[in-house]
């Protein structure tokens, strides 16, 4: 009963069956997962590039190693979106998506991922607050009011909004270079 060969055979058979089953399910769900992830990303792009009628996730430019998503309406480029990451959040990286129009005005900011404190720093997800960036340009003072800027911070949480401001400034700078290169 306990001979070593049987142990090897039984474990191998179980592992092989498991591998077979997993391969099947992986193949069956792969496309669906990729679609869901793309939908997610497009939803984010809709917020920061309102009104595009192309496929910005496939229509991209590369500036200084950063990928810019081009939003077009009727074949005419009207804005660019770029992912911007900052490590200055309260905990972990904050990753945002920023859309800027061809005139250099911010069209929208979307938070992709963060690990800020729920209930405090996590308010950076709040749409009304994110919308306060709309219309800002490279010339605006995009810092929190505590630092003398134009953006509100939350009571009890200044670090997270400050980090987002920095990420937005970085995104505007990158997209500004794209505008010059055009």
């Amino acid at each position: 009963m306990n001979n070593p060969l049987k142990m090897v055979v039984v474990l191998t058979v179980i592992s092989a069956l498991a591998a077979l089953l997993l391969a099947g399910v992986y193949g069956a769900t792969k496309q669906k997962i990729a679609d869901a992830e793309r939908q997610d990303f497009l939803k984010g792009l809709t917020t920061v590039l309102p009104g595009f009628d192309n496929e910005p996730d496939r229509d991209t430019l590369t500036i200084e190693g950063k990928t810019l998503y081009v939003g077009k309406k009727g074949g005419q480029a009207f804005g660019y979106a770029v992912e911007s990451v900052t490590a200055k959040g309260y905990s972990g990286n904050i990753k945002i998506l920023v859309g800027v129009s061809s005139e250099g005005k911010v069209l929208g900011v979307e938070v992709i991922s963060h690990a800020e404190t729920p209930g405090l720093g996590s308010k950076i997800e709040d749409k009304i607050w994110r919308d306060s960036f709309i219309g800002k340009t490279a010339g605006s003072n995009i810092t929190v009011k505590k630092d003398g800027g134009e953006i509100d911070s939350f009571s009890g949480a200044t670090i997270s909004p400050r980090a987002v401001c920095e990420a937005v400034r970085a995104a505007i700078a990158v997209i500004g270079k794209a505008g010059g290169a055009k």
Partner: peptide, 24 residues
């Protein structure tokens, strides 16, 4: 399943179901 390898066998079975649920 021989008694000596039952724990590894259980872990493989459990890990398989977890991955199935994760993917779906």
């Amino acid at each position: 399943i021989p008694a000596k390898v039952r724990i590894p066998a259980y872990v493989v079975i459990i890990a398989t179901f977890v991955t199935l649920i994760d993917l779906s």
